[in-house]
Design a protein around this nucleic acid. Sequence first.
RNA 1: CGGGAAGUAGCGCAGGCCGGUAGCGCACUUGGUUUGGGACCAAGGGGUCGCAGGUUCGAAUCCUGUCUUCCCGACCA
Length: 492
Amino acid sequence: MAKEITSREADYSQWYNDLIVKSSLADYSAVRGCMVIKPYGYGLWEGMRDVLDKMFKDTGHVNAYFPLFVPKSLFEAEEKNAEGFAKECAVVTHYRLKSNPDAPGKLMVDPEAKLEEELVVRPTSEAIIWNTYKGWIQSYRDLPILVNQWANVVRWEMRTRLFLRTAEFLWQEGHTAHATKEEALAETVQMLDVYAKFAEEYMAMPVIKGVKTESERFAGAEETYCIEALMQDGKALQAGTSHFLGQNFAKAFDVKFADKSNKLDYVWATSWGVSTRLIGGLVMTHSDDDGLVLPPKIAPLQVVIVPIYKGDEQKGLIDNVVHPLVTQLKDLGITVKYDDSDAARPGWKFAEYEMKGVPVRIAVGARDLEQNIVEVARRDTKEKMQVGINGLAFYVKVLLDEIQLHMFNKAKAYRDEHITPVQNWTEFQGVLETKGGFISAHWDGTAETEEKIKEATKATIRCIPVDAVEEHGVCVFSGKPSTKRVLFAKAY
RNA sequence: CGGGAAGUAGCGCAGGCCGGUAGCGCACUUGGUUUGGGACCAAGGGGUCGCAGGUUCGAAUCCUGUCUUCCCGACCA
């Protein structure tokens, strides 16, 4: 038993940490709050990135890259945004080291090399980008600008967790500029839909589309849309956000355009992003006590083939069957690995690929060949099936689709069971303590009530669902009138 | 940033109170036997005990500082 992980029941947090490390997604690093994303974890991110990037391109966006550093004077231009991030900014103050005269062989910051103006390491890029857009935009003919960047950002978090919250993380941030409010709003909603589609169809992670309350809104935004997912421990995870920024950044950076009648107006803006946090969400949505469970559409490796043999003669016979199978699977666009390494025995390989969440495993032994079959095992349900070799590649292709669908349906069933409508404060507290998940409740719309509920229970309003129905009710906490239900939950 | 715990071979740990030149399991190397759920036998290799100071004839062990990680709070994606 070389690699065992803590069970979810014993300690959910420890299970998560064990899983990330033992499945080789990431490692802790020598830098406080920063992690190393290992090749398997990065492969997962690359797969997600490739799909999202295509979805962005298909909706008319292009990629660009802006600087890591933001001069402090630019950063503080949009005051609300700057204040919102001020407490977690890394700041570059010097540009040179020198030998330390008091400690031979050691270096020190050269006090003579102090920067004229401090550079903020971007926690997000609105400031540097809007400063740049000012030079790109004169007329309505220059609009819209639909730019995305894949980048790293830094937020100096006090308490970090692998993938979910690290000081540095990878993400994409879209920054668009529009001539009208309507167009910007449409863009905001469009990208929210892109995120939701990606989460559900590729990650098999069901999400609720909604709007943030004022206190949870992105600093500097007029409106923040979000997708919220539910983890297996009943806590919610904000998985992506899309912001309608109004004219806030255009005003802060003086970005005006001339419309068709040559009238000057400020540009309308959006920004939207998802990060490597999605990997944490993926892990906590599907995985079990034996390791990762990855949806086929995102899994870096979809199929692994393990030979079981005694001696070179049997190995040769198995090779004769497996090699054409590998070709057939690849021709169907399936990623496959034939693990015929002699370094580990079959049982060890089984456990290892289960830990890594490979969706389908095919075991081929001499006994199978006599009957012209193989053993196909699916990771999500742990089922094993005897399948004929003829037509096997196509069978696997269909099976991968079935696994993808089953994973989504299972996660959705769990999520739906954990959206609990409550009518009063007693029920609210009871559900939160015993069951967890989302609580659908009426709220009076005030930040005061929201804050008091948070203080009392640690639950926050995750979102006001976009499909919330209008109904008359009374606030679960204050008893004041309310027109729609919102979703509360404890959150990551 | 406050409270708690931890850091000794790649991983998991013992040793520490009572200072005397570091050990166990797994992993690794070589050879052999094996292979249908984390194989077995034999012989090997590998550690400035997180880092930096201090006490001492002598420090993994005692003292001080510091770094990193985990858990609980406050803050946040």
